[in-house]
Amino acid sequence: MQDQVDQEHALAEWLREVADADVTSGASPAVRERLLEEVRARRRSRRSAAIKMYALAAGLVIATALPVWQLTTRPSLDRSTRVVTSPAGDAEVATAFYPLAYGAVPVTHGNIVRVAVSPAAVAALGVETIGVSTSPTDVLVADVVVGEDGLARAVRFVRTQARNGLQEQRP
């Protein structure tokens, strides 16, 4: 019985010796390098996928928000003014086109002619200006639609961002 216990103790001792002898064993450095390279590759892949996902999300937000924004902002523009871009690239606020005396005459090739007119001239065209100073020295900028026959069909009034004179004009 004692022999059995002694042998078991001896076996346990020797198994510990085996464990101690293996203490420096381990996977080769090449394995670690291969694995770390795989980690880096996956991280790069994830980053690329994340960028694509964010870009897609941003596109979806814009695609969703733009029509909503247009729907919510259009009524106020349609009421009287809209933002346009001048030939020089400046932002301008313009009214809608208002028909003039020959507005009903059909036109196939019209041109828009920008003119600077006095409030009195505008009044002579039958257009009523509202909230605009009527000082004789004031000048209003207007775009006039002129048909191929030379008759003016419609007019709109334009205000550049730097100008404050034109608030709203109605026929």
Binding site: S25, G26, A27, V39, R40, R42
Partner: peptide
Amino acid sequence: ASTGDEAAFGELYVRYQRQIYLYAA
């Protein structure tokens, strides 16, 4: 480690590679 954190992966590797190596060997 599974999300590609190199430091975490390295730490996990250091903790377990030897034991797993010995088990497999």
